[in-house]
Amino acid sequence: MRWPPKARLPALLLAPALALLLLLRLAGPGPGPAPPASPRRPGPTHVLLLSSWRSGSSFVGQLFSQHPDVFYLMEPAWHVWMALPAGSAAQLQMAARDLLRSVFLCDLAVFEAYLAPGPRDQSSLFQWHVSRALCSPPACPLFERGTIVPQEGCMKVCGKTPLHLAEAACRSYSHVALKEVRFLGLRALYPLLADPALDLRVVHLVRDPRAVFRSRELVAPLLLRDSRAVLGPQWDRVPREERPLRVLGAICRSHVRIREEARRLPGPLAARYLLVRYEDLARDPLTHTSRLYDFAGLPFPPQLRVWVQNITRGKGMGRSAFLTDSRNARNVSQAWRWALPHDQVVQIQKVCKDAMELMGYLPVLSEKHQKNLLLDLLSAFKSPSDTLV
């Protein structure tokens, strides 16, 4: 059927809206069995590590980055937020989602719209040097493909690799993994989950809000622009001293929203979502990394087992807040208990009450309770049907 010329433009404009309405109807609650899964096309598996700032996502990102079968990039949506600083998180989520889809398909030319004028090489990409794939062939000959790559060496040698070689590297892997902290809900990502060309798996990483707050305090100036975007128009109306807690409350609500929206996914799509607590990885890294890899369809090579054990069983708290190096992960996960004043902990527990209950974080009832590290503050999920890695 051919459309009359005057009808073509309205039809083209309506088509995406009708497709989205159909998707949301499939994703919402309703009677009857879930629709059948879309046919799987041959191609790479895509993994989105979805988290928030200071939640251990850089560490979990490295679990994917150091895997020899994975092409990994850290926070590509950073470019959207930096290029459009006046936008709120809600206003920027569609542009960020479209960028993610292009990157998952190894179309790195999508970054052109957000990069400053000048040479285009992989050093233009945010935190490019934390990607093992960009430090080994075909992107860069510095390290062999299966080698555990230190970030410092890569930064000095591999930055001038042109983006077309980075694209070639992306296309040479069986898995493409991206880490993101700039989505405050799952709904905007439904089209990616439903796209059979992507075979997308979402790993939703959460961390105890009290630990998140303490970690954010240490790097607060570096998170200022992101914090403004999280609060959006409310930022200027909130007293300065109240902003850190207000931002944390928004982040906690976003984790509840993501979890609830994941529960409304139809059966085949629901199986592509996994909730992971940072504390469980810190306590038993080998077991929970193995389950994480199983979810993504990845093996757990012996050299990675050694690296995971070493990186999580080091001494001290690490050299830098933004460097994934050897540290005592269990101590890091509990540092808030001796670093935060109890009255501040009480405030955090109040604004993040729903998130803590949903994710299995127990409140402390007194300062003595808080300081007693023998008291376990992790519990099981609220719903017995939930699955925890």
Score class of each variant (00 low, 15 high):
3 W>V: 04
13 L>E: 13
15 A>V: 03
18 L>V: 04
20 L>Q: 11
22 L>Q: 13
28 G>I: 05
36 P>K: 15
38 S>G: 14
42 P>G: 13
44 P>N: 00
44 P>S: 05
49 L>F: 09
49 L>Y: 13
50 L>K: 00
64 F>D: 00
69 D>I: 00
69 D>W: 01
77 A>P: 07
81 W>G: 15
82 M>F: 04
85 P>R: 07
100 L>A: 08
101 R>Y: 12
105 L>F: 08
109 A>M: 08
114 Y>D: 13
114 Y>A: 13
115 L>Y: 08
117 P>A: 10
123 S>F: 00
125 L>M: 07
131 S>D: 10
132 R>N: 01
133 A>T: 07
136 S>G: 04
137 P>S: 15
139 A>L: 09
140 C>Y: 12
140 C>T: 12
142 L>F: 03
144 E>K: 15
145 R>L: 03
145 R>W: 05
148 I>A: 01
153 G>N: 06
156 K>F: 04
158 C>A: 11
166 A>G: 15
170 C>F: 00
171 R>V: 13
172 S>N: 08
172 S>H: 09
172 S>K: 08
175 H>T: 13
179 K>D: 01
182 R>N: 14
184 L>S: 04
186 L>G: 04
186 L>C: 12
190 Y>N: 03
192 L>V: 14
197 A>Y: 04
211 A>Q: 11
212 V>C: 13
213 F>T: 07
218 L>G: 03
219 V>G: 01
224 L>D: 11
225 R>L: 08
226 D>Y: 11
234 Q>C: 08
235 W>G: 05
237 R>M: 04
238 V>A: 13
239 P>D: 11
239 P>M: 11
242 E>Q: 08
243 R>Q: 15
245 L>H: 01
247 V>N: 03
251 I>P: 00
255 H>V: 07
255 H>N: 13
261 E>Y: 08
263 R>M: 12
269 L>K: 02
271 A>F: 04
278 Y>T: 06
283 R>M: 08
284 D>N: 08
287 T>G: 08
297 G>K: 05
299 P>K: 11
307 W>N: 15
314 G>W: 02
320 S>W: 12
321 A>I: 06
322 F>H: 12
325 D>T: 14
325 D>L: 03
326 S>T: 14
329 A>C: 06
330 R>D: 06
333 S>Q: 00
333 S>F: 00
339 A>D: 07
343 D>P: 03
343 D>T: 01
344 Q>P: 01
345 V>L: 05
346 V>H: 13
350 K>D: 06
353 K>Q: 10
359 M>R: 03
364 V>F: 05
369 H>I: 03
371 K>I: 00
373 L>E: 00
379 S>L: 05
383 S>A: 15
384 P>C: 05
387 T>L: 10
387 T>W: 06
389 V>M: 07
